[in-house]
């Protein structure tokens, strides 16, 4: 792995992302900007999952729960702002500063409760329990009749407000998400290289040894779980803003699976991997049907998942290193 190559990749990536609205405009596909924004948002969620999955070795199958909690908090605050009603005695708000912070705080709190219980177990139990808790949150949202139950609700008040910016404009919102991702990625890199990150990796490599060294592993893992939950909650708040729509579907258990796939596809335990994973996953979802249509396979156009499922199995069986590692190793395999 060379640092030089990593730098080139980063500069290239930054340039592409920064000029994305122009590029899409130039090829006359500016409607794809929404999909590009979605990639940025899911990249934040996948990165946050990677903290516990890739660095802490905790296979959480319920990460979409925190994404959904973040989306619902921002959505519900906006809902009450529009209705001019209160929730638990508090007025609604459409201020990004308040709503997004509330999303982060409440997802972190949920992650603290769920993590504190789930981390009492390990291995396959942990997978099942995180899945079950996410399912519990799913049913909680489905039962919120006031907020549309099964169907979810529209944010009639529009996107959150930031002084001096018009988030209702898709290009402005794209750049806000890009800035959010950049800040999140830099913070993430600092975190995993810090002492905290090293301890977390140590827990993954050999937890009994870390404990023997006098390290309170449970607490470290719990803190990581809470940070990851908060990150996903932030992504959820952005996603609610992107679509101006919130529904229990964000917490559907397959969404948690999607996030896991993004991390693996991009490269587990790497800072940038989940971004590539999110981009590849969402682009496959968007373009596979179109590709099959172009190939004259209408059956597969409708049922593209019948190809996607086996693809996933093959990736797991044969190409586990992920896209990021492939980009870094490209053309230099013989020298290793």
């Amino acid at each position: 792995m060379s640092n030089k190559r990593n730098t080139i990749l980063l500069v290239l990536l930054g340039a592409i992302l920064f000029t994305m609205p122009l590029l899409l405009d130039a090829i006359g596909q500016s409607f794809l900007l929404g999909s590009a924004t979605r990639i940025l948002i899911y990249a934040i969620a996948a990165m946050s999952l990677n903290l516990i999955l890739g660095y802490g070795g905790m296979v959480s199958f319920g990460h979409a729960a925190f994404f959904g909690v973040g989306a619902y908090v921002t959505g519900i605050l906006s809902f009450h702002m529009f209705e001019d009603t209160t929730i638990f005695g508090l007025a609604g708000t459409n201020s990004a500063a308040i709503a997004w912070l509330a999303s982060i705080a409440i997802s972190a709190l949920m992650a603290l409760i769920i993590g504190a219980l789930s981390l009492r177990t390990t291995g396959v139990y942990f997978i099942m329990i995180t899945l079950a808790f996410a399912q519990m949150i799913y049913f909680l949202f489905v039962s919120l009749q006031r907020y549309g139950g099964d169907d979810g609700f529209m944010m009639f008040d529009g996107r959150s407000r930031i002084a001096g910016l018009e988030l209702g404009d898709d290009i402005s919102f794209y750049f806000v998400c890009l800035a959010a991702l950049a800040i999140f990625a830099m913070g993430f890199k600092t975190l995993v290289n810090s002492r905290f990150g090293q301890v977390l990796k140590g827990c993954h490599e050999n937890e009994p040894r870390m404990r023997a060294l006098g390290c309170p592993t449970y607490r470290y893992k719990l803190v990581a779980f809470v940070i990851a939950g908060a990150g996903a909650g932030f992504a959820g708040a952005l996603q609610a803003n992107l679509t101006e729509f919130v529904s229990p579907d964000y917490v559907h258990w397959t969404r948690s699976g999607d996030l896991l796939i993004m991390v693996i596809l991009g490269g587990i335990g790497t800072v940038l991997g989940p971004f590539f994973g999110a981009a590849a996953f969402l682009m496959l979802e968007e373009f596979l049907p179109i590709i099959f249509k172009g190939l004259g396979l209408p059956l597969l156009q409708e049922h593209w998942r019948v190809v996607f499922g086996p693809m996933l199995i093959l990736i797991v069986l044969f190409a586990k290193k992920g896209l990021y590692a492939s980009l870094m190793d490209w053309g230099r395999r013989k020298n290793d």
Binding site: L53, V59, F61, G123, V124, I127, G257, L260, I261, I264, I268, H303, R305, V306, F308, G309, P310, M311, L312, I313, V316, L317, K320
Partner: peptide, 20 residues
């Protein structure tokens, strides 16, 4: 393989089975 691989591969089976 570890549990993560098992989860992902069998998740792939679910996608395939439901669509099939």
């Amino acid at each position: 393989r570890d549990h993560l691989d098992q989860v992902l591969a069998t998740f792939g089976i679910i996608l395939f089975a439901n669509e099939m």
